[in-house]
Write a protein that binds this DNA or RNA. Structure first.
Length: 919
RNA sequence: GGGCGCGUAGCUCAGCGGUAGAGCACUACGUUCACACCGUAGGGGUCGCAGGUUCGAACCCUGCCGCGCCCACCA
């Protein structure tokens, strides 16, 4: 006996445990493999709404495919999240007033991180389970576990040997708070209020030139002033101390007289050349640009092109260096203090022309939120441009399909303009780069130190060193030291994530899982990590594997808050999915997310919607209770094709249509369409009509029709459980178990097949006629203010043989649902009756004395008005010759029929109006 | 500066070439033996604006207005 309502709190953990124990999450069976690798959440993380959506959709697909008999592997795991995790642990150490990481050293620190991971790293996994995620937890991986580390090493070494990974000294995005380089993607450019300072750089030897200050309409100069300086503008005055030149555009005639000469770099008291380069825009600012090659990406390029000296100004914390080219007073100052000082000093010397307020784009570290400083350092790079080629082609050729297709454009755009990927990070938590340096600075890349050492010995031997020399190399003044010193840096977290689709399956070993499940079927993710992750998996997968990492990429929405803002911890606008699960159950949250996951659109989550879908679950629960109370028990031996009753054939027909619709939608990732179709069928068709229409039979005398109806109803309800299971796994599984004795759990039950639910168009037409009539009667009753409880008589006027038969067949149903006391046939409508027109028939309800003549007149007039409007619309179309000529025949025919139907209806209504007017 | 997306019922959103839809909210009625987390009936939209294409446009095209996102080196 079913309880009064479903209790998610007690049922969910119980059901989940049963599924897991049963081995349902394992990729067994002989079906076609269906594989999804989970976007590994950060070990530091907890489940947010984005995860909830992402994993709901993956779980919907996995459950759907599992029921369709495929051998489903949903590969789970977590990401070590280098920067984030290191930050979390360091913060915790600080809170506990423990020694800093630099004080305890690398090894001790890493022990602490591992300890932390062991202690609280599993939180998000538990939360995924609460959502109902059917990952194969026995295969859980971590990006820093042994197997994945082996994959990382192998990939790094291979790419290095192929020349696709290299070490280079160039400008990188430096995070002065986290003290590491970061990639372009980890920089967030934000517009901030800044200033634009205009400085004079005096010319050498007090030289002067004529600078045009007014022009005629042709742009010819008309007025000049004599200048002994060149005017430059900057948003970062402190960097002037590192200027190596001033550049102007070669076509800029204003500066032609002084090109090639030198100007004084104030404060630094150096002379720097005035050069030409294509970079300066003559129409912007003064047209002259100070070139600070070591602290600006553009300037760096100019400096490289023109062989301009670079002056590194700052240390790793962005404090001014103690360097001989920096005046003493600035040394040791923070860059922002230095800025103030520089401006003050320039002004004091009378070299400040003006200061403008200006909005500027400033780069911030996405983790640290401090201003990123371009710094000249040695880092490791992946030659992304070369690796992108195969990845681009794979999508072009359709080997990987991105859905919605609009995102492939974004993918291409980024891939085609890709920059070298800086993969080294000056952190401790992560995959330490497998590179070792010899005494002469030569780098040896190998999977192990032994191999690197072997290589080193080989190289030095070939260079003519004897074994003894090599041994001597190991000796420092202090004594024994290793020949090679390992690179301290670790790899970008995304480097290991990029290998996820094959590293989790066992690569580089040739495991059975790899053979069976690669390429994976679909990657489900949000668009904000297309660059970070999808693109890089494509590059790595296409390079190291014989095929693409996934056949489909499904890009889903971002979940936003009610104001349409991205949820973020810093904004404090996060809606916790677990709170919603506690309140409404996991099923309600899942269904809401799926129902709102329309392609190409973001989701603004509203709690009312979750509540609404929780109610849907309850509705289904109650339908099942009804079935239970009325002996509708699932019978595996019952064949829906054997159903004879019209009502049963109709509901089977409708169920078949729904199966088709939901299946097609799920196959093409239209989650919202699938959810909507199932919802409408379950509530608006099965509950609202079938169950209501079935009541008289179910509650009547025992007979074959009753037995068939019981079995049909139970069967259709079972089909709903199946269809709904991917979306609402808990409540459907519970009902599945409670409503019949079954051989298998719902989670592994076969997905419904449309072909086993035969269509019955004539039955559908008949039942729809009944439904329509009931609707019409109800509507008229309400409008005539007939009390809901009152039973009234109905007279079918001059009904033809077909409607008469239908009326006769469904007399009891119609009477019950429309609250009629009797139904009889007559040749004319009785006086003082409300008359309705349904599919050409007139149905009158005599309301002797009760009827409000004026109200009935108004009602009929309103109905007639509707017909007139429809007819007018059709006439307008039909009277247009080109419509009849050019529109498809079936459209024209449809309109013709429409006209006939409405005209007939209007005629009947008019007759009714006429009659009532006489009365 | 490029690129993408969005403006449809009070709110959150489907629909994207042939009769305007859902959930929530709202109004009226309802103790019908599954369900008030319910039922029945109903109100509510010139589908951002202006042009164009088409027999026909919420849907395609162009422009404009408003909003959002991504990328980018204007010092």
């Amino acid at each position: 006996m079913l309880d009064k309502a479903f209790d998610p709190k007690s049922a969910e953990p119980r059901l989940y445990e049963a599924w897991e124990k049963s081995g349902a999450f394992k990729a067994s069976g002989k079906g076609d493999p269906f594989t999804i690798v989970i976007p590994p959440p950060n070990v530091t993380g907890s489940l947010h709404m984005g995860h909830a959506l992402n994993n709901t959709l993956q779980d919907v697909l996995c459950r759907f495919e599992r029921m369709r008999g495929r051998s489903v592997l949903w590969q789970p795991g977590t990401d070590h999240a280098g920067i984030a995790t290191q930050m979390v642990v360091e913060r915790r150490m600080a809170e506990r007033q423990e020694p800093r990481r630099t004080e305890i050293g690398r090894e001790k620190f890493l022990e602490k991180v591992w300890a932390w991971k062991a202690e609280s790293g599993g939180a998000i996994i538990a939360q995924l389970k609460r959502l109902g995620a059917t990952c194969d937890w026995s295969r859980e991986r971590f990006t820093m576990d042994e197997g994945l580390s082996a994959a990382v090493k192998k990939v790094f070494v291979a790419l290095f040997r192929e020349g696709l990974i290299y070490r280079d000294k160039r400008l990188v995005n430096w995070d002065p708070k986290l003290l590491t380089a970061i990639s372009d993607l980890e920089v967030e450019n934000t517009e901030v209020a800044g200033h634009f300072w205009h400085f004079k750089y005096p010319l050498e030897h007090g030289e002067t030139y004529e600078f045009p200050i007014a022009h005629d309409e042709n742009g010819e100069p008309t007025e000049w002033e004599t200048r002994d300086y060149i005017s430059i503008a900057t948003t970062r005055p402190e960097t002037m101390l590192g200027d190596g030149a001033v550049a102007v555009h070669p076509s800029d005639r204003r500066y032609a007289p002084i090109v090639g000469k030198k100007c004084l770099l104030p404060l630094a008291d150096r002379y720097i050349p005035i050069i030409t380069d294509e970079y300066p825009d003559p129409d912007f600012g003064s047209g002259a640009v100070k070139i600070t090659g070591a602290h600006d990406f553009n300037d760096y390029k100019v400096a490289m092109r023109n062989d301009i000296k670079l002056y590194v100004l700052m240390d790793e914390r962005a404090r001014m260096l103690d360097a001989d080219y920096i005046p003493e007073k600035y040394r040791g100052l923070d860059r922002f203090e230095a800025r103030k000082q520089v401006v003050a000093d320039i002004e004091e010397r009378g070299l400040l022309i003006k200061v403008e307020d200006k909005k500027i784009m400033q780069p911030f570290g996405d983790r640290s939120n401090v201003v990123i400083e371009p710094m000249l350092t040695d880092q490791w790079y992946v030659d992304a441009e070369k690796m992108a080629i195969k990845a681009i082609n794979a999508v072009l050729d359709g080997k990987t399909k991105i859905t919605p297709d609009a995102w492939s454009k974004t993918y291409f755009q980024w891939m085609r303009n890709i920059e070298p990927w800086c993969v080294s990070r000056q952190l401790w938590w992560g995959h330490q780069i497998p590179a070792w340096y010899g005494p002469d600075g030569h780098v040896f890349v190998a999977e192990t130190e032994e191999e690197a050492t072997k290589e080193a010995i080989l190289r030095y031997t070939q260079e003519g060193y004897s074994l003894e020399d090599i041994n001597n190399m190991r000796r420092h003044e202090e004594g024994e030291a290793p020949l090679l010193v390992r690179d301290e840096d670790v790899l970008d977290t995304w480097f290991s994530s990029a290998l996820w689709p094959f590293s989790t399956l066992g690569w580089p070993d040739e495991t059975p899982e790899l053979a069976k499940h690669y390429p994976t079927s679909v990657l489900v993710t949000a668009h904000d990590i297309i660059f970070f992750w999808v693109a890089r998996m494509m590059m790595m997968g296409c390079h190291f594997m014989p095929d693409v990492p996934f056949r489909d990429v499904y890009i889903h929405a971002l979940v936003l808050d009610e104001k349409g803002q991205k949820m973020s911890k810093s904004k404090g606008n996060v809606i916790d999915p677990l709170t919603l699960i506690d309140k409404y159950g996991a099923d309600a949250l899942r269904f809401t997310l799926a129902a709102m996951a329309a392609q190409g659109r973001n989701i603004r989550l509203s709690e009312a919607r979750v509540e609404g879908y929780r109610n849907f679950g309850t509705k289904l629960w109650n339908a099942a209770r009804f079935c239970e109370m009325n002996g509708c028990v699932f019978d595996a031996a019952f064949d829906p094709a054997s159903a004879r009753e019209t009502l049963n054939r109709w509901i089977i027909h409708e169920a078949g249509k729904t199966v088709e619709e939901a299946t097609a939608a799920l196959q093409s990732f239209r989650f919202n369409d699938a959810a909507g179709a199932i919802y409408r069928f379950a509530w608006n068709v099965l509950c609202d009509w079938h169950i209501e229409l079935a009541k008289p039979i179910l509650m009547g005398e025992d007979c074959p029709a009753k037995e068939e109806t019981r079995k049909t109803t139970a069967l259709v309800l079972s089909e709903v459980f199946k269809l709904l299971h991917p979306f609402m796994p808990f409540i459907t599984e519970e009902l599945w178990r409670e409503s019949a004795s079954r051989e298998t759990a719902l989670i592994v039950a076969p997905w419904p097949e449309a072909k086993s639910l035969p269509r019955a168009e004539s039955a559908a037409a008949e039942i729809n006629w009944v439904i329509g009539l009931i609707n019409a009667i109800r509507s008229a009753r309400a409008e005539m203010n007939v009390p809901a409880g009152a039973k009234i008589e109905m007279v079918a006027v001059a009904a033809g043989p077909a409607p008469s038969l239908r009326l006769d067949l469904h007399r009891e149903l119609i009477a019950r649902l429309a609250r009629l006391s009797s139904i009889r046939l007559a040749d004319a409508a009785p006086k003082g009756a409300v008359q309705i027109v349904h599919e050409g028939g007139i149905y009158a309800m005599p309301l002797a004395g009760v009827i409000d003549i004026a109200a009935e007149k108004a009602r009929l007039a309103k109905e007639i008005e509707k017909c007139v409007k429809e007819i007018e619309a059709v006439d307008k179309k039909m009277s247009n010759p080109s419509f009849v000529e050019r529109a498809p025949v079936e459209i024209v025919e449809e309109n013709r029929e429409r006209r006939i139907a409405f005209a007939a209806r209007q005629e009947k209504l008019a007759a009714a109006l006429n009659q009532i007017a006489e009365a």
